[in-house]
């Protein structure tokens, strides 16, 4: 199978990058619990937080997709059902990526 080694490394690399990003996510979530719109927007428009949010969501979605595909391979028997679940997973994560693209344009570049 082509790309198995690359896939293994990408999963590890995304895990490694997600260590600081997930700590940022917890800190951001804790800081913004109950915040009003102006305060939350000001927080997210700070360049470092905007960058962290975009990286967290894109790399997180990549990592999530890889993880769910592995779980489907491991536990879902048959042929049609795993293929269907894998398609749904890719579609969902792809949709999330598109949303993040829109967010990145607005947060990072103010478009």
């Amino acid at each position: 199978m082509s790309g198995t080694i690359e896939q293994w490394w990408m999963q590890r690399l995304s895990s490694l990058v997600l260590i600081p990003l997930s700590l940022w996510f917890l800190w951001a979530g804790a800081s913004l619990a109950g915040a009003d719109h102006a305060a939350a927007l000001a927080f997210m428009q700070h360049p470092l937080n905007a960058l962290a949010a975009v990286l967290m969501t894109t790399i997180g979605l990549y990592h999530a997709q890889a993880g769910i595909l592995t779980i489907v391979e491991d536990y879902v028997p048959g042929n049609a059902l795993p293929k269907f679940l894998m398609l749904i997973t890719r579609l969902g994560c792809g949709l999330g990526m598109l949303a993040v693209l829109g967010l990145a344009a607005k947060l990072l570049f103010g478009a």
Binding site: F25, H37, A40, L41, M44, A53, T57, G60, L61, A64, G67, I68, I71, G96, A99, V100, G102, L103, K106, L107
Partner: peptide, 26 residues
């Protein structure tokens, strides 16, 4: 694995919708 599934199925959609709402729909 279960926490990974939770983060994918619950947290990721919530967080992304939260961000979209923050930026596009106050």
């Amino acid at each position: 694995r279960l926490t990974g599934v939770y983060l994918t199925v619950v947290t990721a959609p919530l967080a992304i919708i939260w961000l979209l709402a923050l930026v596009f729909a106050p």
